[in-house]
């Protein structure tokens, strides 16, 4: 299911992440932190539409810009 025929795909760059944890505050369904080094752990590459706003917020708020959200056409694989 997708609205306007696109869905969001989330990617993270573990080498940029500084473990601030702001993404987890925004959206703990989609992001977590690895226990051993605090680096971001992506729980959903294709999040539910209900979390789109929070996921986009997490990408904006990431202080090291380690989260990318892109629109892709069609449905999640």
């Amino acid at each position: 299911m997708s609205n306007n025929n696109y869905i969001l795909r989330v990617t993270v760059d573990e080498n940029l992440c500084v473990g601030a944890g702001l993404c987890v505050l925004s959206s703990s369904d989609v992001f977590d932190q690895r226990d051993e080094d605090g680096v971001v752990k992506l729980l959903q590459e294709y999040p539910d539409q209900a979390s789109y706003e929070k996921v986009l917020g997490a990408a904006r708020k990431c202080p090291s810009k380690a989260i990318k959200v892109e629109q892709v056409n069609g449905d999640a694989p």
């Binding site: 917020g57 990408a59 904006r60 708020k61 202080p63 090291s64 810009k65």
Partner: peptide, 23 residues
Amino acid sequence: YQRPPLSKAWLAGGLNDGDVHLE
């Protein structure tokens, strides 16, 4: 907006103002 990227990723280019807005 958040300031940390201003001296890093934002300055290096490729980000818009909207990418650093908190809300």
